[in-house]
Simulated scan of single mutants.
Amino acid sequence: MWKSVSQVLADQFGAYYNIKEKAKVHHGEMHESWLINDHIQPVFVKSNEKSYRSMFRAEADQLALLAATNTIHVPQVYGVGCSQNHSFLLLEALPIEAVEEDAMAEFGRQLARLHQSGATQKYGLEFDTWLGPVYQPNEWKTNWATFFAEQRIGWQLQICKEKSIQFGDIDEIIRTVAARLAKHKPQPALLHGNLWIENCAKVGNKIFTYDPACYWGDRECDLAFSELFEPFPASFYRSYQQSYPLPEGYQARKPIYQLYYLLNFSHRFNGNYINLTRKIINSLS
């Protein structure tokens, strides 16, 4: 694999990349991660079996999509490639520091600008993505309630059912969610889609975010997930609200949007996520 990595980086940097240091840094839920260095340019490498190339390509395309908005900071993509048995994604290596309050205030303003970028009138994306290791369909829809109820809640409920985790009648839950959102017609916003504290880091005086699950949807989804487990510092929400105030009814919609992520975590990790999921579903009826 490493010869192929060097070849892709040579195309990126214009000179052969001679790997002089290589260290495994984090074994995530799916991929292996490495930090490599030629003593000039460190590079972060995600790797997996060859069949994962399409997932890495989608991640690279999403990071490029976010970067093109000139709003939030994301790692630069150096390339996607394959060897005989492996696929890999090559990213800018970030000198990560602990998140601080002041930097998060600016990040709130940047996220507000992201959510105001673009002018699509549909919900979805040109390609499908993944939330963690789970496929995320993004078929274009003109109705937000239909999109979210079917392609987010219904999709995750079906995966839970296939893993013998039952939350009730799937069609009935989909109808209930759609009814709750029926009068809400948000302007489609480009979402990070996987925005929580685990996917953010301070680099210098900037907040970088990664591992996206992008699509055009209700901007409230990004905010709702950021509040679910370990909320961002108060300065983030304050500056976001000052830059792009949330509409009336967000607090009522927030648990519905958090339900998507809780369903995803339920079939990935089980445990207390199932209880939290069931509590929200029961509150909808």
Score class of each variant (00 low, 15 high):
210 Y>W: 15
184 H>S: 07
188 P>H: 06
194 N>Y: 02
213 A>P: 08
186 P>R: 12
178 A>S: 12
195 L>K: 07
178 A>T: 01
179 A>Q: 15
207 I>L: 10
225 F>K: 04
197 I>W: 01
173 I>P: 00
210 Y>A: 00
232 F>P: 06
207 I>R: 02
223 L>P: 03
221 C>Q: 11
173 I>Q: 00
203 V>L: 13
227 E>P: 01
203 V>C: 14
233 P>A: 02
205 N>E: 15
193 G>K: 09
226 S>C: 11
198 E>H: 11
224 A>R: 02
207 I>K: 09
177 V>W: 00
222 D>P: 12
182 A>N: 13
191 L>G: 05
177 V>H: 01
204 G>E: 14
181 L>M: 11
202 K>V: 02
227 E>Y: 02
208 F>P: 01
222 D>C: 12
185 K>G: 07
203 V>Y: 04
199 N>F: 06
190 L>I: 10
203 V>T: 08
198 E>A: 15
191 L>D: 04
175 R>Y: 01
191 L>I: 09
231 P>K: 12
230 E>K: 13
215 Y>W: 14
192 H>E: 06
210 Y>V: 02
187 Q>F: 00
215 Y>M: 14
208 F>R: 06
216 W>K: 06
188 P>E: 06
215 Y>T: 03
176 T>L: 09
232 F>R: 13
216 W>P: 02
203 V>H: 07
219 R>M: 12
188 P>D: 05
199 N>Q: 12
233 P>N: 07
192 H>W: 10
196 W>Q: 10
227 E>V: 02
214 C>V: 14
215 Y>P: 03
184 H>T: 11
174 I>G: 00
217 G>Y: 10
197 I>F: 04
205 N>G: 14
173 I>L: 03
225 F>D: 01
184 H>F: 15
196 W>P: 03
220 E>N: 12
177 V>I: 11
206 K>S: 10
199 N>W: 05
232 F>H: 09
207 I>C: 08
